[in-house]
Design a protein around this nucleic acid. Structure first.
Length: 229
DNA sequence: ATGACGATTTACT
DNA sequence: GTAAATCGTCATA
């Protein structure tokens, strides 16, 4: 039987947790009571005050990133580019603003609900526009592919910012009873979309499961800058 | 009050 | 590969 991740599980450094999260299951309970599940296949570690790529670089503390200073196991959700949400799991210790960004997951339960969340059916879109082929059906492995899409598919937005995953009322992490992902199946490389981070741009703090079809890509491959973990 | 800018995604050349 | 979409947030004034 899978067990829900405890406070202790999250109370580690970001680099360690980013790897430990691979292969675990994100369990989301929607307001309707509907349960969605997806296996985490790609993460990024953000190291806090010293990390130029982190929202908390230099000790920045604002209303937006306040939850990064909360206890480990807290969810940090932010809104960016005027249209996307990104979800992080806060780790370390209280007041140590480090976290792991959830970049991609492989859906295993509630795929129809995820698809509905990704592609809301509007009156205008239902009949004619659908035939005009402007909207294609999203492939299973694309539902939670990329941090923005993952949040959309799981119904995660700023309303969930600051919730406690250990309590697990609307979101939790489940540790499978099977053997953990073997390091041979994991690669690491530079984080995505942090070109402004100067000396931290190349740090290999992105982790992914090699053979997962749900891993996000940049350019034509997901393996850029890869190196085995 | 204002302006620059995203821990992104998608479509298009 | 390049570009547009789109707006909350934060530093500056």
């Amino acid at each position: 039987m899978p067990r829900r991740a405890t406070r202790r599980f999250f109370a580690r450094d970001a680099e360690t947790l980013a790897q430990a999260l691979l292969g675990t299951t994100l369990a989301r309970t929607l307001p309707s009571g509907r349960i969605l599940r997806a296996v985490i296949v790609e993460t990024e570690a953000y190291l806090g005050v010293a990390d130029r790529a982190a929202h908390t670089f230099g000790g920045r503390r604002t209303p937006r990133n306040e939850s990064m200073y909360a206890q480990p196991g807290t969810l940090y959700v932010y809104f960016t580019y005027g249209m996307h949400h990104c979800a992080n799991i806060v780790c370390g210790t209280l007041n140590e603003p480090i976290a792991v960004l959830l970049r991609a997951a492989e859906p295993i339960e509630g795929l129809d609900a995820m698809r509905e969340l990704r592609q809301p059916v509007t009156p205008a879109t239902s009949q004619r526009d659908f035939m005009k082929s402007s909207s294609r059906v999203i492939a299973d492995h694309d539902l939670c592919r990329g941090p923005g899409n993952l949040c959309k598919a799981l119904g995660i937005d700023r309303g969930l910012d600051g919730i406690d995953l250990v309590a697990g009322h609307s979101l939790s992490v489940e540790i499978p009873s099977s053997v953990p992902i073997h390091p041979d199946r994991v690669s690491r490389g530079p984080r995505i979309g942090i070109g402004y981070a100067e000396d931290w741009v190349a740090a290999p703090l992105r982790f992914w499961i090699n053979d997962s079809a749900a891993v996000s890509r940049v350019g034509s491959r997901s393996t850029r800058g890869r190196r085995s973990v």
